[in-house]
């Protein structure tokens, strides 16, 4: 039996993470791609059209998971920010660095697919309503995180700045979530809520669930893979990278 604290410390070790994450990444990529292929074909060809939106409703199968993941990734960065500010764990800093571009891409995808849906449905691709505006703010927050990381020399200072910005920006996630309930928005309220029946027929719910799961798996896999890359880049000169990459003289046993 390995005690919990051993796992905690070991998982904080760069080498343990670098080697242990390979299998996870492989399975997450495989699962993600399979689920997304099934989910997208289901959504495009087999799910019914909506009685009012018609065929455009199919865009929801990529828009909803992208928007959901863009917020979840931000919350993960904010949580990592708390952990970094308190424990100063290097891997947590690497996690924040790896997640920011992924979240940025997902937010862009949510905005783009939303606009594509909005043009035939609402009659416009963009309005300054609370939901859309707060999502645009999220996009800028991600850009801010990436820029801060690039602009500040020294990992400690950059990590500090990124953690604080991530934490402060987390308020925006609450605003995105409740914007449709607090304000009169053009964007409709959520169809799936905790503690209530979904306002969506099962024929839409199933392909959506498959796509959401697929997004989760692929994003988790990509995040781990990006962390590995960042780790090797930062630790390029260390002994563990040398022994993992099999270069130079072997260390004496």
């Amino acid at each position: 039996m390995v005690s919990l604290s051993t796992i905690f410390h070991r998982s904080g070790s760069s080498r343990f993470f670098f080697q242990g994450s390979v299998a996870w990444i492989r399975w997450l990529y495989v699962a993600g791609i399979l689920l997304l292929v099934v989910g997208m074909i289901w959504g495009l060809f087999f799910a019914p059209a909506d009685r009012l939106q018609g065929e455009s409703a199919r865009i929801m199968f990529v828009h909803v998971p992208a928007a959901h993941l863009s917020q979840l990734v931000y919350l993960a960065i904010a949580a990592a920010g708390v952990v970094w500010l308190v424990w100063r764990m290097k891997l947590v800093d690497i996690c924040m660095t790896a997640l920011a571009p992924i979240g940025c891409a997902l937010t862009g995808l949510a905005l783009a697919s939303g606009a594509i849906w909005g043009i035939p449905t609402w009659g416009t691709g963009w309005v300054w309503d609370a939901r859309l505006t707060s999502t645009l703010v999220l996009f800028f927050l991600y850009i801010g995180l990436i820029a801060l990381r690039g602009a500040l020399a020294g990992n400690q200072r950059a990590a500090m700045a990124v953690s604080i910005l991530a934490l402060v920006g987390a308020v925006n996630i609450r605003i995105i979530k409740y914007s449709v309930d607090w304000f009169a928005t053009l964007h409709q309220p959520g169809s799936i809520t905790l503690g209530g029946p979904p306002a969506m027929a099962p024929a839409f719910l199933w392909p959506l669930a498959v796509n959401v799961l697929g997004f989760h798996a692929l994003v988790a896999g990509a995040a781990l893979a990006a962390m590995r890359a960042e780790l090797v880049q930062r630790d390029a000169r260390t002994d563990w990278v040398r022994s993992v990459l099999n270069v130079g003289p072997k260390q004496a046993p």
Partner: peptide, 20 residues
């Protein structure tokens, strides 16, 4: 004039029903 969609997603076969 913009159309506002509500949160309900319903297949065309169910159009006679008000709720899912």
């Amino acid at each position: 004039v913009l159309a506002r969609h509500d949160e309900n997603y319903t297949p065309p076969e169910l159009k006679d029903l008000d709720t899912i």
